[in-house]
Amino acid sequence: MLVLGVETSCDDTAAAVLLDGRTVLANLVSSQDGVHGPYGGVVPELASRQHVRHILPILDGALKKAAVTLNDLDGIAVTRGPGLVGSLLVGLSVVKGISFRWKIPYVGINHLEAHLLAIFLEREVVFPYVALLASGGHTLLYLVSAFGDYLYLGGTRDDAAGEAYDKVAKMMGLGYPGGKVIDQLAHTGNPRAVSFPRSRMKKGSFDFSFSGLKTAVWHYLKARGENRWEAHKSDIAASFQEAVVDMLVAPTMRAARELGVSRIVLAGGVAANSRLRERMLEQTQEEGMEVYFPSPALCTDNGAMIALTGHRWLERGRRDDFGLNADADLTL
């Protein structure tokens, strides 16, 4: 089965072609970082405008790279939520148009489900597993027991992990997106230089919270003044990152322990973070568990994971009709 996957839920226009739910023939992403950079975060209206410009060239590029034509496709999968509604509508409308013209079945995909399954593009993972989805828009913990069987365990109460990175990067004048720059800078810094607070949830909760940490960084910077912290900004970056990683690792490990699950899957843009990967590897090894993470290109938003999820739904016979709308708050 040959499936085209289209993803426009936030600021990346992405399309991919997937053969038999396994072989990625093409996986193209047009990043808008240059557009949103000056604002220090994604501007929804600008993102929608960029998608309209890029969607057909990206989609066409993916088909050409995969050396297939529309006639070869067995189905199309497109993100229908959650995300920015204006952005979602561009991908969804284009896909509905193609599906209508060429009578190719299509399915609207839940972006979160696609992230939780992205690992299958590279590895077989035995169910059940605990999945941590951490990105600029989400910080969620799920128990994945089978395809289609996702149990919500916890989520962030305020900022998403990636959002905290962006905001701290903005405070420190490091640019956007924050994840990459802070990760890079942290390599040369001391993670124990500044002891930023770790928010603790009450017993039994698998929730996350990053706004306290963000505020702590702000106060730290303000109390010192730019000329005094500038010299050891790599230490601040490393210490901030260590706190984020601590707060991501602890509930994830605890969930696996308490549920008696020995496999953990990371997903989302923050799963590309080098320190998070390192710490999760150490922790899981220590406790005799296994951790899986997709390569960075499959952690961030991409069309391949949408195609994969679409493949699974299509093979179960699901088809969506042309009245389908985008859903900004779609849950799993």
Binding site: V52, I55, L56, L59, D60, L70, L89, V90, G91, L92, S93, V94, V95, K96, G97, I98, S99, F100, R101
Partner: peptide, 8 residues
């Protein structure tokens, strides 16, 4: 966007 899809 719908027209883009229909015309593609």
């Amino acid at each position: 966007s719908t027209v883009k899809g229909l015309a593609y």
